[in-house]
Amino acid sequence: MSTTDDLLTPAGRQEGPVRVALPRTWWQRHGSTTTVWSLRLALLVLLLGFWQLAADRWIDITFISKPSDIAERLGEWAADGTLWLHTWITVQEIVYGFALGAVTGALAGFVLASLSLVYRVLDPFVMALYSIPKVALAPLFIVWFGIEMHMKVLLAAATVFFLVFLNTAAGVRDVDRGLVDAVRLMGGNRWHIARKVVLPASMTGVLTGLKVAIPYALIGAVIGELVASNRGLGYLINDAAAQFDTAGVFATLVVLSVIAAVLNVVVGLLGKRVNRWKPIDE
């Protein structure tokens, strides 16, 4: 038997698990995270070093450019404001498109999946629309909405909508009947069931949808810009490629990756907050 001093449970309760404070060193706490991050950094440095070395030595620089040129180009663009202008446009398109698609997708998924008959009727139509490659919609969207920002926002939203919609609907339809019955037994009405059971239970599905949809918001916006635009990172890629400016293309790709990484972190934080009740990691 351990002494009662290190027990965090109230004295006298011996049944059930007992919680004990666990003294850990800094390395035990953060050791594996540190290792992973150092290795990631090392891998990145190694790849960039190899690229720098290979460029112009084994492979023509016109095709692959080289990290130092790309960094230089980023520096130039940052200095003359090109980078900020185009990045800001693309970020706006992603954020508006994502928000629009996510909100409508989650709402539609929640409402339609709760109406079982409607869902069954609409299901094949939704799947058909979902299966259309969204790039194929770009020309139509240009006709409908012009080549301004609306078109890119809506193209991004169209992609996000389906992913969030389908995942939300799956989450709603997977709700445990037992939990719904539990609320009915407490005298809860449809509104209580929706708010206290279906909504939290479907959160996992919604979040999966949001997570999966993030890169697609970016893809939607950039494809819209590639098809027709005079501003934005997609335009920048087109413009640089037309001038055989590989460094410019890669510089834009770097910016896009950074945007994607930041968006992923945001969703990760959201997921942690909502899914606290999932099994804890050892």
């Binding site: 445990d176 037992g178 939990l179 019955d181 539990a182 609320v183 037994l185 407490m186 005298g187 809860g188 209580h192 206290k196 059971v197 939290p200 239970a201 959160m203 606290r276 009740w277």
Partner: peptide, 26 residues
């Protein structure tokens, strides 16, 4: 009151908020 064979506690609520639930609905 009905205590079912399987557990129907809301997995996203802690013990206290689960116990409070019938009162919340009332």
């Amino acid at each position: 009151g009905y205590l079912t064979q399987s557990d129907t506690l809301m997995p996203w609520r802690g013990v206290q908020r689960n116990v409070e639930m019938p009162l919340e609905i009332r």
